[in-house]
Computed example of a mutant assay.
Amino acid sequence: MTFCFKLLLTVFLYLGCAVAYAGEKISIVVAGIEKQIYLPVKLAEQLGYFAESGLDIEFLTDRNGINAETELLSGSVQGVIGFYDHTISLQARGKLVKSVIQLTQTPGQAILVAEKSAKEITSLKQLKGRSFGVTGLGSSTNTIIRYLAQKSGVQSNAINILPVGSGDNFINAMMQGRVQAGISSEPTISRLTSAGRATVLLDLRGIKETQAVFGGAYPAACLYMPNAWVTTHRNEVQKIVIALVKALNYIQTHSASEISDQMPASFYANDKENYVLALKNSKEMFTADGKMPEGGPETVLKVLRDYDKSLYGKHINLNNTFTNEFISNPK
């Protein structure tokens, strides 16, 4: 076999593999892609970091984290951009998934009280008998309010917890009086507070506030995938993680205004100035490098165990719920 023929054969095989590889679509669902807690995903896409990876990735959006989890379990998607607590609750049900990169170290959310109820609800205890809005039953917002209510001496079943979604749906539920309070993220928080339509009862955007409430870092937004898929698609996972790490680095090295300039105008909800201010005030929620915050998994497990009966008597191996491997080996 001549050298030229060997060379042509090698090139042919390489190109053939590349075409086949490029044709493998990876679907990832985001629990509300317009939410600032998930900003690194859209930012990485806008900056071309995913395109650089050579992967064929499609991002779907579902504003309810529990729906995103269901899509993952059905096999219709390969990953979820959602909250880390799902990896623990799923393990309790015998489903092994893990966070391959941690995007935030706080929930990035706040408990809001509607303007009309501000005088009657000045503490978590006063949520008793009230209607409270969450994105969905079984969602991370539902997890947090149930834990905080119980911590304040109020049984969660004493609160009328309603699934109202996020964004405009959440705002409408509050404005129409269907809920007197609720938990949401940016830019919804600032849209309501800047217009004087709601006040913040409890802030979970900052690091200090989060540690005061939960007793430590509370890892939230992440990319979680089935452990089996991660094992058999290590190269793809690595490339996705690299793109998201680049986005996290961009957030650390650029102003809120510069970051916002990269986002689609539709994300601003017709108020870019407010969007920029909201991001400026909550940028610290993002991790610097994508690593799981030390002690974070233990904090989340404690929160879940305090009220979630599905975890009672269950052994949870936290080492199977996350990995820093793809962060520690970026190449």
Rank of each mutant, 00 (worst) to 15 (best):
T70Y: 14
T70P: 00
T70C: 11
T70N: 03
T70A: 15
E71T: 03
E71G: 12
L72A: 05
S74F: 03
S74V: 02
S74H: 10
S74Y: 03
G75C: 01
S76T: 11
S76C: 00
S76P: 00
S76M: 11
V77A: 01
V77G: 08
V77S: 03
Q78W: 07
Q78P: 03
G79A: 14
I81K: 05
G82I: 04
F83A: 13
F83N: 15
F83Q: 12
Y84S: 07
Y84G: 05
Y84Q: 03
D85P: 13
D85W: 02
H86Q: 03
T87S: 08
T87A: 10
I88F: 08
I88W: 10
I88E: 05
I88D: 02
S89Q: 15
S89V: 15
S89T: 15
S89C: 00
S89K: 15
L90S: 12
L90G: 11
L90T: 06
L90M: 14
Q91Y: 01
Q91M: 14
Q91H: 05
A92T: 06
A92R: 07
A92S: 15
R93H: 08
R93C: 07
R93I: 00
R93T: 00
G94H: 09
K95A: 04
V97T: 15
V97C: 05
K98Q: 14
K98V: 00
K98I: 00
S99P: 01
S99E: 04
S99K: 07
V100W: 05
V100A: 01
I101N: 07
I101W: 06
I101G: 13
I101Q: 09
L103K: 09
L103Q: 00
T104G: 12
T104F: 01
Q105P: 04
Q105A: 11
T106Q: 00
T106N: 06
T106Y: 10
T106I: 02
P107C: 03
P107W: 02
G108P: 03
G108E: 13
G108W: 05
Q109C: 05
Q109Y: 02
Q109H: 08
A110Y: 08
I111D: 04
I111N: 09
I111C: 01
I111A: 07
I111P: 08
L112I: 09
L112N: 07
L112T: 09
V113H: 12
V113Y: 08
A114Q: 12
